[in-house]
Nucleic acid binder design. Structure first.
Lengths: 197, 197, 197, 197
DNA sequence: GGCTAAGCGAGACGGTACGTCTAGTCTTGGG
DNA sequence: CCCAAGACTAGACGTACCGTCTCGCTTAGCC
């Protein structure tokens, strides 16, 4: 699943892969440089040395381009840190995520998630291509931790992920508190111990 | 703290409160009718029978107008449901919030929170005028529940709020699962019991 | 020489001649209907079924559009009435000009000449495309009359034209007297006889 | 005849003459500094330390203010140069006028005359307060020259004035040639000798 | 090797909204 | 009733992008 449109397969001149890459790279560079709002399809086209229709032939709007650029950049770097005990992997993953969220990557996520609130297709793409793959991987980690006895056997992994990860996105967006390591550690500890007596 | 600009206090014709109200009410009506994106400063001005400069004199952009309209509507209706046991008040509050989030109010929150990702002032206003007052009230409820023995005495209330409320915003935005009553109940139960063995 | 901007010659979609005509015709129609001041670029765009930027891509402002519309209308109709004796052609030309100046054409000239007082480019266009072609034609007529013995051989044709035509523009603008036939005849006679004894 | 409105004579606080002067002087200063078009009622009010309604109470629009300012400045300096022979006075007057027209005064006249093409009241004021007084004075000079034998006895003074002065305004506006002394001398000579054989 | 269908860069097109400006009027509080 | 200040409605300004279209030109793949 991508946000980009597909071409009818066999007829006429094929779409240029070079152009495709140039667009996505330019999009990413511009978003990093001036922010999502200040970027326009026009500015991408101009800098990439590409006609506007060439972009619109492939994506329905700016957000979709940036989303694809974001996803393209992700695919390689999707390595989850792993430890012997799954619970440690979990903590490590959370820590690396908040660290990433504190930088440019956080800004990009904010913009895409913000934009997704106005565009269902963007929201779908964001969920299916960024959120869900991570949750699936996370689920195996959590289940492993359950087997290893570090998490209770009767918990609902979906709710567990919500409890642990939603606060990270919440702080990214709302800035109600710092995205610090101690925040992650505190959150994980308190979630394990539980709030009840 | 508001998003609107301030007038120099005592000179010239004072700003009309009637006009102020007309703008905010129109803004809210239009957002409800056609969605945030489809509303423009121009359309608000036209329907409110007001010149555009009158709006720009008071707010820097559309988002700020809608934010203020939203906040204006809030102020009266800020009644938290209360029960004898604080833990029940907490559950009730969470339930009423997800219920509200499932309707127009949820759309509005999504739009404002989405927009806030691109505008720090919007983000500040959203946090200080919508999020924080609720968290302050929530904190007293949580502390009461701690006193009443329904929550452990050594928990961090900030983290507790993050664990319980962030997932609600997360599902509102990402649609990773339903904003149902059973979601709230499960979340609260699992948070109380804890994830650890 | 035109007031309109030039397009880079051979690249991209060429500018539509149909659109060009539609704009100029609409401009002329509106000026005739409601007067120069009451016309706006916006109203022209709206009635011509054209986007505002399409107009601004070609002309820098309303006055330039109207000027070009005026000049466009001129080109075909530039027939000077001619008689056997050049002096009669001269009188005929003056008479037909004051007649035209008494109607809508006079209003248009007034508006353009008025506007030209505030915009050097407008003034240049008005002079080079309306005034000068007429003066060049006029000069040949005057020189012919000199050869035919109806005007003295040692006059300065430039000054002669100023003496005969400036009063027409003067009365058009200042309304110090009527733009009547007897005005033209009296002017021409008195200019021939001279003011001196 | 002025362009300014009159106050109902005896009631309430009388209008301040100081304010009146301040407005006119500011108007003139601004027109000289940045040109007629760039001046607005607002800018005059602001610099003169005066409320906009105070201006609108006295004049209907910017042009009227500037016209009055112009006329106010005139009144003192309306001295016509005089020589023993009326024909010399005439030449002198024409020379001093073209000299004045070459400077800031010419720009002001251009602006007022240009503006008058769009506003009949302006046109009336310009004619009645600037043009006509000069023509009346001029007429006596011309009649004196007729008596003194330097101009023919049977000429029409109105047409004579048009022949001599219209070209000056014409060149001011159209720039078809320089407003030089030789221009004036040539014009006057040729008008005296006549164009005919 | 020529044909043909699509892709390509460029840029014009109809629109929409932006945020600013000025016009001319209205409303304060204070002479 | 005047004044300074400044808010008011109204609407044009000129600009920025949107997403589509139309040029003339590649550039494959298929006959």
């Amino acid at each position: 699943m991508t946000v980009s449109k597909v071409a009818k397969p066999r007829q006429g001149r094929p779409r240029s892969a070079k152009v495709h890459r140039a667009i996505l790279e330019t999009a990413l560079r511009q978003v990093a440089a001036v922010g999502f709002r200040a970027v326009s399809v026009e500015s991408i086209a101009a800098e990439a040395g590409v006609g506007k229709p060439t972009i619109y032939r492939r994506w329905p709007n700016k957000a979709a381009v940036v989303m694809d650029a974001f996803l393209m950049k992700l695919e390689p770097g999707t390595v989850f840190p792993t430890k012997e005990r799954a619970i440690d992997s979990l903590r490590l993953q959370m820590l690396s995520q908040v660290k990433a969220f504190r930088g440019d990557f956080g800004s990009l996520i904010k913009a895409l998630l913000g934009e997704a609130q106005f565009d269902p297709e963007m929201a779908d793409a964001f969920r299916e291509r960024w959120i869900m793959p991570r949750r699936r991987k996370l689920r195996t980690v959590i289940e492993e931790a359950m087997r290893q006895g570090d998490l209770r056997k009767d918990i609902d992994p979906e709710l567990a992920m919500d409890m642990l990860y939603a606060p990270i996105y919440y702080r990214l967006q709302i800035r109600s508190g710092p995205l610090s390591e101690s925040f992650v550690n505190g959150l994980l500890e308190q979630a394990r111990k539980g709030l009840g007596p």
